[in-house]
Amino acid sequence: MRSNPTGRQLRLGVELRKLRERAGLTSTEAGQLLGVKQNQVSNMESGRMGVSPERVRMLACHYDCPDKVLIEALTRMTSDRTRGWWEEYRELLPGALLDLAELEHHAESLRDSITARIPGLLQTHDYAREIFRQAVTELSPPDIEHRLSFRIKRQTVLYRRSPTPYEAVIHEAALRMKVGGSAVARQQLQHLLAMSDRDDITLRAITFDAGAYPGSGQSIYYVHGPVAPLDTVYLDQSHGLVFLDAEAQLHKYRTLFERLEAVALSPDKTRDLIHSVAQEL
């Protein structure tokens, strides 16, 4: 029995519960079909008990789930025993940050929208350090360094042999904000330009002239899973970190990103804007 399931293990359990509920079955009824006790079904759905690929397929059969692609994606989640680099931070950082790193590690692609700062996966060391220094809950120097090293290690998804495709919509305000002073801000913009040259990274900017736009003032991180039902939305809010995976929520944020991209500059014009802002520093 797991005492501390990872975010991925919790998500597998959530998806199994969704399948059961769509089938109109109680956990007791599901247990009867499997020949196990109700509490075992509950433990599987809470991520506290491991589930084999065969059991996932059996559950899908009992639940009359016709989505073979989804079922195969769920079986792959059961067989992945990855305990990645983020585990070394388990006693140092909030668990939600470790869940985010695990999500990114397995993601098919990533989409980011942010207003007041450069996205974390694109931040330089000096820029990120200044962001952590300005945290509302003041961080100690060791805590700042732990968070900094964690953020930089998260960026490895953009540098590995098969980089994760990444798209970001960044407001002009974030480009012009002199985080850490002119020298740090200039270095950050130069880093953005270098990253935007990569085939797997797409940057789009929303200018001040665009006025109000959908989702303004909200930072949104959309993590694409192997199939759409396994997508996740991550919101970094003042009261804490929030993960969303309900179908209606995923549809809402997919639509929001489409509308954001409709008002944003093209990648080429975004590069021109970044270059222009950098020259002004």
Rank of each mutant, 00 (worst) to 15 (best):
R2N: 14
R8T: 08
Q9P: 06
K18T: 07
L19N: 01
L19M: 15
R20C: 05
E21Y: 01
G24W: 06
L25I: 03
A30S: 14
A30G: 10
Q32C: 01
L33Y: 04
L33T: 02
V36Y: 12
V36W: 13
K37Q: 12
Q38D: 09
S42R: 10
E45H: 10
E45T: 12
E45M: 11
S46Y: 02
R48F: 02
V56D: 04
R57A: 14
R57C: 10
M58N: 04
Y63R: 07
D64K: 15
D64H: 15
D67A: 11
V69S: 13
I71K: 08
I71V: 15
E72F: 03
A73I: 04
T82D: 13
R83V: 14
R83C: 09
G84F: 05
W86R: 11
Y89K: 09
Y89F: 14
E91I: 00
L92F: 04
L92V: 05
L100V: 11
A107S: 15
A107N: 11
A107Y: 10
L110P: 14
L110I: 15
S113D: 02
T115R: 02
A116T: 14
L121K: 09
Q123E: 07
D126T: 04
R133Q: 06
A135W: 01
T137K: 13
P141R: 01
D143A: 15
H146Q: 10
R147K: 12
R147S: 06
R147G: 12
R147V: 05
F150Q: 04
R151L: 03
T156W: 01
V157D: 08
S162Q: 12
P163G: 00
T164A: 01
E167N: 03
H171T: 11
A174T: 07
L175F: 03
M177T: 13
M177H: 14
M177G: 04
K178H: 14
V179T: 15
S182A: 15
S182P: 05
A183K: 15
A183V: 15
V184K: 05
A185F: 04
Q190L: 10
Q190A: 03
L192N: 08
L193F: 02
A194D: 12
D199C: 02
D200Y: 01
D200H: 15
I201R: 07
I201E: 07
A205W: 07
I206A: 08
D209I: 00
D209A: 14
A212V: 13
P214D: 09
P214G: 10
G215K: 11
G217V: 10
I220A: 09
I220P: 03
V223I: 15
V227D: 00
A228Q: 06
P229C: 00
L230M: 13
V233M: 05
Y234P: 08
L235F: 06
L235Y: 06
D236E: 15
H239L: 13
L241M: 13
F243W: 08
L244P: 09
A246L: 07
A246S: 07
A248N: 12
H251C: 03
K252M: 11
K252P: 00
V263I: 13
V263T: 13
L265Y: 07
D268Y: 04
T270Y: 00
L273D: 02
V277E: 02
A278V: 02
L281D: 00
